[in-house]
Design a protein around this nucleic acid. Structure first.
Length: 735
DNA sequence: GAATAAATTGTTTTT
DNA sequence: CAATTTATTC
């Protein structure tokens, strides 16, 4: 065992039997305690096969597995997220509760489409309330309540209770017909399986003799129930959490789980880890001062003995562009001072705030990667291609079928499709069955559907015989996607074609990594991956939401957009429920190991107009007593009444930026001698960028070393590059 | 039925 | 502003 563990950590590691709750502050080494404990269990003779470790993300699961493997040489420990665990359990035994094992996992996007489709046939309900309905359905499922039970629960205080019951039960029936499970179902059906089939539960209780749960504060009631059911077999359960870092209550995470733990597991022991090994004292003090403003918490004060007196810097920008520029400038300085890009993170409250940083980083040649926001597998073209695969595996999956019934265009319009849908609805069968039988369809509709019908048949029969990669390629060919995209005149379709090609590569990689698995396993892994899961070892700055970096740490952290209305969000301010926002701020601060930069902007361009917002209350809360917060530039640019905005005239904003004493001199930022002929880069030149692919120069400005090119990339929009920096990444294709 | 033009709407956070 | 939905025209 690691001799560097402190006494509390050691205790938690050594205490292997019974129920244990570890309250572990940010950076207190909880992941290490978890892994050490699992290694310790194996060392004292527990079979890795009997150990379960549940984490919040797949990435955390993989990392833990890797650490265990490195330290003890076994990979037999089952580490996964709750959702992955449930998916695997259900693949084996879900037929016992009336589903087929080929079930499809619906993401929120698909649930959304299903609701939309259902609402079309429910004229008494308001389609505008779709979001509300979805929230209620998810909420009800998390509470494990049926439509009727949930109605009982809310009928007195929600005037929409009747409608909610109606749509919820319709939704349930439709998902059942589609043989599909949404994210909540993965958990709920597992609980139901355990409750209806004690022998199945017993199987897992016998298998998982030591249950571990990481990020316990962010588990919901269903997850708690699953944990409880499995762990009640052996009574050995080890949960690690920190109520100050609970940032997912909007998704159903329930702090009661921590409180109930001691009640449900009699004789549970509680350990506290309060020493922080991550951050300097000044960063930690700031974090403590912020979180102390929350009333709903047990008092706990993290401490650290890592020196570092002036490690927090504050900057008030006069515009969002200035803020981004300041960050870019500081990144350049940091790297000059010996930091590497991968040690730097820019944290935002919402995905929409990442864009300016991307632009500014491009301009300065800073490599970066954005986490959160649109994921590869959520792109339309990928979803479309995969929809064919999905109904090939599970023909009952009407949503996937309808998604691509007229994609690529094959002359099937609203009327034909609606006829098919209502025919299916009338007969109470899946859309696929209605399509195949052709019963109750007009002769015209049946004739029009014929070509699609044969595509469906071909793809389904191919799925039975082909290997994943081969099948994926077949789907693209037979569906007509390949022909459509490659002959399209829309420039965006060229990059879609690239993405679809990338999908084939992903399948091929999956096949190589998992030779025994099929394409349906690929689909499942796709449904359950998140963005941080894809964080790799490349050297780039991470631009991410605070939520996305939970559990991660960086040497240098920028927290940006600290304004009332952004962080905390308007919503939190209006509802008065500010504590979760504060916890989020706490999480953000505690990601930093050495250097923390805190920024806000006086003005921000949103929804097509400039808004002025006061700085976040959290900034004030950080500064508090000590002077660990240093105001580096409280005297921001005057004049203009702060009315500074790019967009309408970029030149104006650029000149204003030069007034900023902290802004970089452009010559400083750029590489000294490039020896590149910038005159080649003129308007309408087609270029290939190593990262963004093919694009066309739509505008240039400046000359020589200062030349900037605006390049339009298919599917990515226009990005601006300083050629002195970007040129090495650019190849001229044609002019 | 499909291509275009006009109008509208929206921003948390994600397994 | 940009993305998506709805209306209009062919």
């Amino acid at each position: 065992m690691d001799p560097k563990l402190n006494p509390q950590q050691k205790q938690a590691v050594m205490d292997t039997e019974g129920a244990i709750l570890v309250i572990a502050g940010a950076g207190s080494g909880k992941t290490r305690v978890l892994t050490e404990r699992i290694c310790h269990l194996i060392e004292i003779g527990v079979s890795p096969y009997n150990i379960l470790a549940l984490t919040f993300t797949n990435k955390a699961a993989d990392e833990m597995k890797e650490r265990i493997e490195r330290s003890i040489g076994t990979s037999q420990v089952w580490t996964s997220t709750f959702h992955s665990l449930c998916a695997r359990i259900l693949r084996i035994d879900i037929d016992k509760i009336g589903y087929s094992k080929d079930f499809t996992i619906y993401t929120e996007q698909e649930s959304d489409r299903v609701i939309k489709r259902l609402l079309m046939n429910m004229p008494s309900l308001d389609p505008k309330k779709k979001g509300e309905y979805l929230w209620h359905i998810s909420h009800a499922k998390t509470l494990a309540l049926s439509p009727d039970e949930y109605w009982e629960e809310i009928k007195n205080d929600d005037s929409d209770a009747d409608d909610i019951r109606k749509i919820y039960s319709q939704y349930e029936e439709e998902l059942k017909r589609c043989n599909s499970l949404d994210f909540d179902d993965l958990l709920l059906k597992t609980v139901q399986l355990f409750e209806t089939c004690p022998e199945v539960l017993a199987k897992y209780q016998r298998r998982f003799l030591y249950v571990h749960v990481d990020e316990f504060q962010d588990t919901n009631r269903l997850q708690y129930k699953i944990m409880k059911l499995i762990a009640q077999g052996s009574g050995n359960v080890f949960a690690v959490g920190d109520e100050d870092q609970s940032i997912y209550s909007w998704r159903g995470a329930d702090i009661r789980n921590i409180l109930d733990f001691e009640r449900d597991f009699k004789g549970a022991k509680v350990y506290k880890l309060e020493q922080n090994y991550r951050s300097t004292t000044s960063i930690l003090n700031a974090a403590n001062r912020v979180i102390k403003n929350n009333t709903a918490r047990k008092d706990k004060t993290l401490w650290s003995d890592i020196a570092g007196s002036d490690s927090i810097e504050y900057y008030e920008a006069y515009s969002d562009c200035d803020e981004a520029e300041q960050v870019a400038k500081t990144v350049v300085t940091l790297v000059k001072g010996g930091s590497t890009y991968r040690d730097i993170a820019v944290l935002v409250r919402a995905n929409s705030l990442t864009r300016l940083f991307e632009e500014e980083f491009n301009l300065n040649g800073i490599p970066y990667k954005v986490f959160g926001g649109f994921r590869f597998f959520e792109r339309k073209e990928i979803k479309d291609a995969l929809a064919y695969v999905r109904f090939a595996i599970n023909p009952a999956d009407s949503d996937s079928l309808l998604r691509v019934i007229n994609y690529p265009r094959r002359g099937l319009g609203e009327s034909t499709v609606n006829e098919l849908i209502s025919s299916a609805a009338r007969q109470g069968i899946s859309v696929y069955d209605a399509l195949m039988s052709g019963a109750q369809l007009s002769a015209g509709a049946a004739r029009k559907l014929e070509p699609f019908k044969s595509i469906v048949c071909d793809i389904i029969s191919a799925s039975a015989s082909m290997k994943p990669t081969e099948f994926m390629q077949y789907v693209l060919r037979r569906s007509g996607i390949e022909t459509f995209l490659s002959t399209s005149t829309d420039i965006e379709d060229a990059s879609r074609l690239d993405n679809v090609q990338e999908l084939v590569n992903a399948v091929s990689q999956f096949e190589k990594d998992n030779p025994t698995l099929g394409i349906s396993d690929f689909l499942q892994s796709v449904a359950l991956v998140s963005d941080v899961d894809e964080m790799d070892d490349q050297n780039y700055v991470s631009i991410a939401t605070v939520h996305a970096v939970k559990g991660l740490e960086f040497e240098n952290v920028f927290i940006v957009g600290l304004e009332e209305g952004i962080f905390p969000t308007q919503r939190a301010i209006v509802s008065g429920d500010i504590e979760e926002e504060r916890r989020l701020m706490y999480v953000a601060i505690t990601r930093a190991k050495r250097k923390l930069f805190v920024l806000n902007s006086r003005s921000r361009y949103r929804f097509g107009k400039t808004e002025y917002m006061p700085k976040s209350r959290f900034v004030g809360e950080m500064s508090g007593i000590k002077q660990s917060v240093r105001y580096t530039n409280s005297g921001y640019a005057q004049g203009n009444g702060g009315r500074i905005r790019l967009g309408a005239n970029a030149a104006g904003a650029g000149s204003v930026m030069k007034n900023n004493p902290f802004a970089p001199k452009k010559s400083e930022v750029k590489s000294a001698d490039s020896g590149i002929d910038f005159s080649k880069f003129v308007k309408n030149t087609v270029v290939a960028h190593t990262k963004f692919g093919q694009g066309i120069i739509v505008e240039t400005s400046g000359e020589g070393e200062d030349k900037i090119a605006a390049i339009a990339f298919k599917g990515l929009g226009v990005k601006r590059f300083a050629l002195a920096i970007a040129a090495p990444y650019l190849t001229i294709i044609e002019n």
